[in-house]
């Protein structure tokens, strides 16, 4: 399926990746090529097939529902680009 510029711009917005208008044509072409190649999967009959949910035949283990980790804000925040006290800081989102 061929993607147009508008679709690429919408997907980039969903993916939170800034794009300039002059990039969109090239991206649309590349992504369309890849998707066109992927579409050969339609040839595979999967009417009677369940989608894979886990490659390993295992049931996920249950554990007791209690806190087992935490209480070290210095470690958690050690790599924050910007912080104030024990908080991450972001641009103001409420007017």
């Amino acid at each position: 399926m061929a993607l147009d510029k508008q679709t690429v711009a919408r997907v980039a917005r969903l993916a939170r990746i800034h794009t300039n208008d002059d990039q969109l044509d090239a991206l649309a072409r590349q992504l369309s090529n890849i998707l066109g190649w992927i579409e050969q999967l339609r040839e595979v009959d999967t009417d009677q097939t369940a989608p894979m949910t886990s490659v390993a035949e295992m049931t996920l283990a249950m554990r007791e529902d209690r806190v087992t980790d935490g209480a070290y804000p210095e470690k958690v925040l050690a790599n924050a680009p910007v912080r104030t006290d024990d908080f991450y800081t972001v641009p103001k989102v409420v007017e």
Binding site: A15, I17, I34, M52
Partner: peptide, 28 residues
């Protein structure tokens, strides 16, 4: 490029045609 492809195949309206189809092919 891969994040964009991934976002597209998971996006509303395309999930079944791409992602779900791929997971079925993976079972096969």
């Amino acid at each position: 490029r891969r994040v964009l492809i991934g976002t597209y195949v998971l996006s509303a309206g395309y999930y079944d045609a791409y992602y779900l189809k791929a997971q079925k092919v993976r079972t096969r």
